[in-house]
Design a protein around this nucleic acid. Structure first.
Lengths: 211, 211
DNA sequence: GTGTGTGAAAGTATTCACAGCC
DNA sequence: GGCTGTGAATACTTTCACACAC
């Protein structure tokens, strides 16, 4: 009953784990397995069973005591939890190597993410097809955002351009941004912002290597 | 005094933040600012001042009461904390768009990460220069690892190949792996393993968008 | 006065352990 | 017997608030 209401009480750490459970379950499903216990799933995903049960318990009761979870059912429920029973419109801003790599990522469409546009500032790149039809010039971005309902902007521009680009999309009410540029973006308006940062990852490895 | 001993007591959450402090401080340094308070740095990096002071306090006393932190000094100290006062040898396995994008990332060498080899399974790709000299065939990887002291293996292969590749490098005693393939890699041997995962990032955005 | 360094307090997250159901 | 769902216990993180140094 509490299942369909606010998600605000769900721990931030739970959310990325749900996506891992989902992916692993899809793999398990494709192997033909129809039922799985939290123990077995935990082994596969590299966590502990109580963690999985607790994570799921925030959303409802999906298992059967003494048996485990029905794989199909749990996949359906997890998709619902993650907002994946609909499609989201995505654009990529910055159509260099990284942007192109992301555009070509196959798992993309599969989970309901619709890549509806790619942008670049370089006239050499504009017009070429890098995975989502012709790349558009960045100067058309603002107009594009007025005409399309973009849910997620993926930013893969050089860092010098990134803050500007992010300001522009946030100002145009794009509700979420996935930023690959090595800057900590800031914004006045509330926006869902996630950073993916190679240099932080490398430095974190360096820290533990140096122990 | 406790400064030069074990790092085991340092919270996992602190480590990535240190790298963000470092990057921001380098920017501040390049603007010519020589002293900064935890308050100002916190504003720039988007956290709170106590967090910064607490994070730094695990490593030593780097500030001056009533004044703040000397920017040059703090950069030096953070590099030391993060194990960046030396160089690390890195290879990239999977020299497609993503691997190439990472190889071309400029901040790479700047912080002491030495890209000493790139590998690919595709004969079309092998031999071409994608940012670190000619790409080597994946069959030479094992031998390469025997002959070179590789500290970090970045895996950007398709997911079907990733677990094999990771097993191989871990077995060859490469002490850390940064995996971009959408699999949760597992390993017997202890290895420092970090995952970067587009689909988890997108699903996390989806969750919050759906609220 | 200003701003650090740090115990103590508050807030989150994970793990335990067991009642309840299959 | 086996496994879920969940309060309670533990562990971890962040934030507060103030003594102390400049």
């Amino acid at each position: 009953m509490a299942q369909n209401s606010r998600k605000l009480a769900i721990p931030a750490a739970t959310v990325p784990r749900l996506s891992q459970y989902l992916r692993k379950l899809q793999e398990i499903q494709s192997r033909g397995t129809t039922t799985i216990s939290s123990r077995l799933l935990a082994d596969e995903v590299g966590t502990n069973p109580a963690q999985i049960r607790k994570d799921l318990s925030y959303f409802g009761e999906f298992g059967i005591r003494g048996v485990g979870y029905d794989v199909d059912r749990l996949i359906t429920e997890l998709k619902k939890c993650l907002g994946l029973n609909r499609s989201w419109n995505v654009i990529i801003i910055g159509s260099g190597k990284l942007g192109t790599a992301l555009a070509l990522y196959r798992g993309f469409q599969r989970q309901g993410f619709n890549l509806i546009g790619m942008f670049d500032a370089d006239p050499e790149v504009v017009g070429s097809d890098r995975g989502a039809g012709p790349v558009l010039p960045i100067k058309d971005l603002k107009k594009f955002l007025q005409e399309h309902d973009v849910h997620i902007a993926i930013v893969t521009t050089p860092s010098a351009a990134a803050q500007q680009v992010i300001d522009l999309v946030v100002d145009a009410d794009v509700p979420s941004v996935l930023n690959f540029a090595p800057i900590r973006a800031s914004s006045e308006k509330p926006v869902i912002l996630r950073q993916v940062d190679l240099s932080t990852e490398l430095m974190t490895l360096s820290f533990y290597l140096d122990k």
